[in-house]
Amino acid sequence: MTLTFTQSDWNDLWESTTSATYGFDDFETLSSLPSRLGNGCSRAIDLAPGLFLSLTDWQCERDWVVQVAAHDHPIQLGVFLSGVLDAKGAHPTLGNGRAYFSGSGISPSYAEHWYGGQRMLVVNVELEPERLDQWLGEEQVQSITRSLLCKGQDWKASFYPKQTNAMRSLALQIWNPPYQGAARRMYLQAKVWELLAMQIDLLTADQAGNLSTPKLKPDTIARLHYAREILTQNLEHSPLLSEVARQVGVSERTLRRGFQVLFGLTPLEYLTRQRLHRAQELLQTGECTVTEVARTVGYAHLGHFADTFKRQFGITPGACVGRN
């Protein structure tokens, strides 16, 4: 049975079942995962004013969901060395080669899904936007921080970079620092800034993509929502994009570009995600076979369905059957 927590319930669970203790250094605390969920701990490391690092090492023994309310969000970077984290529509499944990089601003509410039977090894960095201002020149602050990474009271911008070998190598160095005490803290600061610099460099190199987000007219936004509804309602026999574009009254180019801008996904990525989430729901009921579910959500090739499902959720379709 999947446990579901509100944000308040989640906070209360941690406060009532874990006790934070200092780690090897006085700027670090350890918190144990509540035993009803699994075992392991998280290290919270205060690297500098406005710069925080956490290292999560959890062996999840059951499924749980945390309902996260809308909240103020710092600049954040997450690298997943093991395991996957699923927000079911708020963003793509994280892990399996996909990292998370977000600017500051307001985060919408979402449901965070953690799956049993997996080990989570996550390097997470949080940075207050004022701290970044101190490290960037005025010109860069205007072009990067103000326009992208610091949204104030607007919705934050999120990105899902591929976890390159260089990114993973840096994350592993952060996970296993060779020093203790003040030297360890200095080492971690340097590696965290290097990891952040790597992401900012990738974003600035992609000015024609993520950073230059075109404005969408209200009428176009409404048509794109209509297109998304059409795709959602036709998972088994999805229409061609040209047909969807014609039906909602936009060009196919506008449909592709607008979908990416508005929803952060291409139409195909969105359709794939919806198919897989529908498949997960059907499998969890235990009332259908894997083959029946694959056909229901539009996969004619069972092997392709199984491979795609495992990349998304970290488990095979068979392991998901009857798993509520």
Results as ranks from 00 to 15, higher is better:
M1I: 11
M1N: 07
F5K: 02
Q7K: 11
W10D: 01
E15F: 04
S16Q: 03
A20P: 02
Y22C: 15
G23K: 08
G23F: 09
D25Q: 13
T29Y: 04
L30R: 13
S32F: 00
P34C: 05
P34G: 03
R36L: 15
C41T: 07
S42Y: 10
S42V: 15
A44Y: 14
A48V: 10
L53A: 00
S54Q: 05
L55H: 08
D57A: 10
W58N: 06
W58H: 11
C60K: 03
R62P: 00
Q67C: 13
A70E: 12
H71E: 12
I75S: 01
Q76C: 03
G78W: 06
L81D: 15
V84R: 07
L85A: 12
H91E: 10
T93D: 10
L94H: 03
R98H: 08
Y100P: 02
S109N: 12
S109M: 14
S109C: 12
E112N: 13
Q118I: 04
L121N: 04
E130T: 14
E130S: 05
R131T: 10
L136E: 12
G137M: 07
E138Q: 10
E138G: 14
E139P: 00
T145S: 15
S147V: 03
L148H: 10
L149E: 02
L149A: 04
W155Y: 11
F159M: 15
T164N: 08
M167W: 03
S169M: 00
Q173L: 09
I174V: 11
W175V: 04
N176D: 07
P178V: 08
A182L: 11
R185I: 09
K191Y: 12
A197C: 11
I200V: 13
I200K: 00
A205S: 14
P218G: 06
I221G: 05
R223G: 01
H225Y: 12
Y226W: 10
R228F: 02
T232H: 10
E236V: 01
H237L: 13
A245V: 02
Q247T: 08
V250G: 00
E252D: 13
E252I: 02
R256D: 09
G264F: 10
T266W: 07
E269R: 05
L271R: 09
R273Y: 09
Q274N: 14
R278L: 08
A279L: 05
T285L: 06
C288H: 13
T289G: 13
T291M: 02
E292N: 02
R295P: 03
R295Y: 09
V297L: 12
G298R: 02
H301T: 07
H304Y: 14
F305E: 02
D307Y: 13
D307P: 00
R311M: 06
Q312M: 11
Q312N: 07
G322H: 05
R323K: 13
R323C: 01
